[in-house]
Nucleic acid binder design. Sequence first.
DNA 1: ACATATTTGGGTAATTGGGGGC
DNA 2: GTTGTCCCAATTACCCAAATAT
Lengths: 104, 104
Amino acid sequence: MDTGDRLLTPGEVAALFRVDPKTVTRWAAAGRIGSIRTPGGHRRFRESEVRALLEGEGELEELRDEQQPPSTANRPRNEGPGAHPGPSRSAGHHSPSPGNVNMR
Amino acid sequence: MDTGDRLLTPGEVAALFRVDPKTVTRWAAAGRIGSIRTPGGHRRFRESEVRALLEGEGELEELRDEQQPPSTANRPRNEGPGAHPGPSRSAGHHSPSPGNVNMR
DNA sequence: ACATATTTGGGTAATTGGGGGC
DNA sequence: GTTGTCCCAATTACCCAAATAT
C-alpha cells in the first residue's frame, strides 16, 4: 500500500477540496493539515492525507435503518441487497490525524 | 476510485434546488444528502449526488455491473401506498433568495 | 541568464455554520 | 413535519504585490 508519498501542491489540494489555494495554506498554517515546506518556503501536502480527508466524513454512511411511518413514508434510498464491495471504514478508524477539535 | 464528480458548495446546491443555503445545510445535517466537510468545517457536496437528486428519483439501472443474487429478484422499493411525491415546491411568492449574491 | 506559472504574504468582502424564533 | 429569516462567529474567496519553482 502506498502510504501516499506523492506530494501535492496547494493548487492541487485546493482543486480537490473545491477551495482556494489560499485556504489550503491557511489549513497548513493552522495545523489542520500536515505540510512539508520546501527550502524556498512553499508548501507540499501528502496525497494520502488529503485523500483521507475527503474520503467522506459525511454523516451519512451506514445509516440505512430508517423507520417507516405507516402512511407517509417515502425513502427512495434503498440499495439492492447483496455484497457491498465498498471499502468499509470499519478498520482502523482513528488515524494519526491532527487533533480535529473544531466545534464551539 | 474517484467517482470523478466535482464538489459543489452549499450555495451552488441551494441555487440548483432553488432553496436557501440553510436548507441545504439542514439536509446534510439530517443525513438526507452526503456531505464532505473541509478542515475548516464547511461542507461540500458531490455533484453526482446532487444531480441524481435533481434528476428525479428515478434511479434507473444504468449500472449493469451490480451483481444481484439470482434468487431474490425483489425490489425493495418502498414507495408507500397512496400518492405523495416529494414535497410541494410552492416557491414563488417571495423575492428570490437574497442570500445568494449581494447581501449586506 | 531568461520568462512563465504557481505560491506566498496581507487585507477586505462574501459565504457558511450553528442556534433561536416565526 | 418542512422552509425561510434573524442573529453572531468562523471560514472562505478575491484583491494586491513579491518570491519561488519549473
